[in-house]
Nucleic acid binder design. Sequence first.
DNA 1: AACTCGGGGTG
DNA 2: CACCCAGAGTT
Length: 390
Amino acid sequence: MSSLPRGQPTNGEILRALWPTAETVMPADVELPANVDLPASAVRQAIRRKLLTWYDRNKRDLPWRRRVGDGYATWVSEIMLQQTQVETVIPYFERFMTRFPTVRALARATDDQLLAHWQGLGYYRRAANLHKAARMVAGNGGSLPDTVDGLLKLPGVGRYTAGAIASIAFDRRAAVVDGNVMRVFARLFEIDDDIADARTQKRFWVLAEELLPRGRCGDFNQAIMDLGATVCTPTGPQCPACPLRNHCVAYENGDPARLPVRKRARVVPEIGHVVAMIRRGDSFLMTKRPPGGLWSGLWEFPNTVVENSESPETALERVLKQLKIPKPKSIEPIGRVTHRLTHRLMHFDLFEISANSKQVGVVAKWTRPGKVGISTACKRMLTKLRMVNS
DNA sequence: AACTCGGGGTG
DNA sequence: CACCCAGAGTT
């Protein structure tokens, strides 16, 4: 418990339920949870002012922030930023905007062209949805919807992204709740309920709507997210540098880093694969992943899951049979690549196969991996092959 | 409400 | 290693 000198009361002292005032607009589907505490009007005002002042002095210089009012750029950046950190996104965003400078350019692109620019970024369904949405927008005159409701109709745009685009690009009065906002609010108001719970999420949205200023909503939203990314970080928050420390209940109570609270992740299944790497010059025999699932639309080396009941050899025979290469000239084990995803641990046992090109059927295509989109796992398989061959 | 869907950064 | 990240869509 800190005894911090301060000129203003904290939320802990002032908290009381204030229900919708004339200055706020509540979404129709939000009902007030019985236990939600809203800060008093004066505290809300102080939080807005301090956050915006802090943002004016400390905001990060990000490529998409240099395109003020550009809905397309904001849209692309927000899709890329879903579950992906800013530093990872920056180079992808630059390349993407150079290659697809307008909605129409994106709408004209092929799946493979698009995925070649998305490869390595993950969550490839985002690219498919963005592509589909770009065609919707292009077919509708080429201008992006500028309201939350309009944006929500686009595939891949949910409540967060619609609020972000509407407020940042179009200066609409819309709130956002993302991982940063939840962390900042959980600490600011000392909310220790599971943040995955629907009621808790509803509570975050209520707070976000309530705290929204009349103007500069886009800056306000970005301010909370910048604060969460640079000061109110998951571990080791820099509370002395925080403009909201005098209002932060968790700081007052001494342990903001324990928040937010989330349920423990479950154990991930472990899955084995065998992979056939068949090279001819710079090209490899590759197959395209089916739409919808993991690595959707990316290219990969022919492979199969090794079932529990079978040996790797049997599984590899299955792959070669599908490729119409039942008896290759040679099969050379190269080694193993292990790839961890959020919900899966994958092993790939690699085999370099030599075969006459006449043996090759039409199941797979000769492709240069640099030309089409491949997963990071496949990229690591290539690295492994080069290591073995050098 | 629980799953799926990537990959990288962090302590 | 475990946890987290400018979440959305499906079941």
